[in-house]
């Protein structure tokens, strides 16, 4: 009986060892997406010439960057959209030029935010979140309207810089992605 128990324990030990060699790697392989770093920031990039922007009139520009999709690297892919609003007429000293940039991703559930020129506000077509010219949450004077967005539009770091030949100005935006559904702005 002693021998029988010993043999059974031996079988079990071998089976357990083999299972470990098999299932630990399987677990690591399957759980890999959990530990992959997201590359949401692509650094500052030039998105428009200053001259293209009219004061007070928002313009949407795409953010172009590298996008790694599993095994494929898209070298020039649209990785996001940004609303630009030029705030003053200044066109001499780049440091005095004021341009604001807001991510077009709605903080509510991630839809793309549109701009309504008639009403002069931003509106998300999915669930009707509305934002004013400063990107802040606003409430419409409509009965029963309740703004679903937990926070205002996400503002991005935006600068005006000289072009390489010095005759022109570029608007430079540092694009970031933020977590949706939170009242705080937290980077993804």
């Amino acid at each position: 009986m002693q021998r029988r128990t010993l043999l059974i324990r031996g079988c079990q030990a071998i089976a357990a060892a083999i299972m470990a060699v098999l299932f630990v790697p399987i677990g690591r392989f399957i759980s890999a997406p959990l530990f992959r770093k997201s590359q949401s920031s692509s650094g500052a990039q030039r998105v428009a010439k200053l001259g293209q922007l009219e004061v007070g009139k928002p313009m949407q520009v795409p953010i172009i960057g590298k996008r790694q999709d599993g095994w494929t690297l898209y070298p020039d892919s649209v990785i996001g959209k940004v609303w630009l609003i030029r705030r003053n007429e200044e066109a001499e000293n780049p440091e005095e030029c004021k341009v604001d940039a807001y991510s077009a991703v709605c903080p509510h559930i991630g839809c793309g935010i549109n701009h309504s020129p008639d009403k002069n506000h931003f509106i998300c077509p999915c669930h009707g979140a509305v934002f004013d010219e400063q990107g802040a949450k606003m409430n419409l004077e409509e009965p029963g309207y309740n703004n679903p967005s937990p926070r205002g539009m996400d503002s991005l770091i935006c600068k005006v810089v000289n072009s390489d030949d010095g005759d022109d100005f570029w608007v430079e935006v540092e694009y970031e992605q933020f977590q949706i559904g939170l009242s705080e702005q937290i980077k993804k």
Partner: peptide, 12 residues
């Protein structure tokens, strides 16, 4: 387990 221990040893 007489045959099983042999099976498992060889498989290991």
């Amino acid at each position: 387990p007489d045959q099983s221990i042999r099976n498992w040893s060889v498989f290991a």
